[in-house]
Simulated scan of single mutants.
Amino acid sequence: MVDYQNKAPGVYIEEITPAGPIAGVGTSTPALIGTTTSLAPDLTMGKPVLVTNWTQYTANFGGWQAGLNLPYAVRGFFENGGTTAYIVPVTDMTGLPGALDQLTRVPDVSLVAVPGLVDPAAQSTVIAHCEDMRNRFAILDGAPDSNPLKADGPLQKQRAGLLSHNGYAGLYWPWLVISDPLAPAATPGTVTVPPSGHLAGVMARSDAQRGVHKAPANEPVRGAIDLGYPLNDSEQGLLNQASINAIRRFPGGPPLVWGARTLTDGTPWRYVNVRRLVTYLEASILQGVRWAVFEPNNTALWKGLERSISEFLTRAWEAGALFGRTAAQAFYVKIDEELNPPAVRDLGQVIVEIGVAPTRPAEFVIVRLGLWAGGAQLSEG
């Protein structure tokens, strides 16, 4: 600030730093909750710990142990392209509520998984946490099941107990078969592990390569050599109707994520990428307009907010995240007297209305094959 008290009367130029463009928040940092082999002396049970590689994880929590799902999930996360994760060690699932409470204090978490947890009541607490925070998505493991379509079987009973009205969770099945790291080199074996840690890595990789707007499906699951249950098309069709995301293995290829639905009961939030995209947009805008707090609530502020938010959404549209031939078709930003009458301004509030048209995945690709005979076309829909 220039000290004008000691200057001669006149006109002076003072440069100010304008509000910068809105930066996108991170979308691929999971919190992985579970029991560990050990715990470093300086760590506390139930407190999130940031790790950036497998070696750092083993130094803090130990390595492999038969019956523990967390080490396999963490290794699967890093194998599939993940770079940063919070590990929350718990003694058992009685520590889950406390772990989730601790995660409310870690704003950069965007995914939550409890590898191996298949109890729908406990999983519902994870969903509720994500819905309350509104900036993260729950990756849930489906229950192991030898008959996934049986109404009173483990998987269908689990699914019946899960719901996220606004799509903050996805359920994935079956479990993955990986090489057993505890097996002797002379007699290698396999072990079946829950998919949620690997899926967190798949989402991180997809976000980095394509963007959060791309459905994290039709993506290979690195480290998986087979599946605990080989689904066929008719079985998956029924699971897909129940919003259970399948992991499939097609001839000659690796296991692939082959579903992108959330656990919602409505259409708007049906797809994983739509939910995660809108979460990303909301979190980025909330973080990017903090400069406006305590500013004079006038039309100059409104124009500044409109300009900043529109610029950010234009970048999202240009990246292919929003649908429309023009930016005007892809989104709108409204901030005016209608939304902000004197009664609202007197409360110290500024209301901005934003509408976006997210791109949705091509879940069903219809190929129409035509046969030409004497100029006539015969086609199968």
Score class of each variant (00 low, 15 high):
V177N: 12
Y57W: 04
Q56S: 14
D152R: 15
S234R: 14
D152K: 15
G320S: 10
F61T: 08
I354G: 10
V74E: 01
R136T: 05
R136M: 06
P21I: 00
G253C: 00
Y271W: 15
A23L: 14
A319D: 12
P41L: 01
R222A: 09
Y86T: 09
P254H: 08
S310G: 13
W317F: 02
I87Q: 03
P9W: 00
T299E: 09
G237Q: 11
P251K: 11
I244N: 03
D132N: 15
A151V: 08
E14T: 14
I127S: 07
A319V: 03
P71H: 05
F364C: 03
P220D: 04
P9M: 00
L70A: 10
P144C: 06
L171M: 09
P48W: 01
V191C: 12
R270C: 01
T299G: 04
I127H: 06
R276S: 02
A242H: 09
V112M: 09
G26S: 15
L50H: 11
L70F: 03
G288I: 01
P254C: 03
P216Q: 09
A160G: 15
F78W: 04
I139S: 05
P184Y: 05
L286A: 12
D336A: 12
N147D: 13
G98Y: 01
Y280C: 09
G370Y: 02
R290H: 06
R360S: 08
V278A: 05
F137D: 03
W317G: 02
G211P: 05
V90E: 00
Q349H: 11
V274Q: 02
L239F: 03
A200D: 01
W173I: 02
L199P: 02
G201W: 00
R325H: 09
Q241G: 13
W175Q: 14
S38A: 14
I285P: 05
E311A: 15
Q5D: 07
G320W: 01
F78K: 11
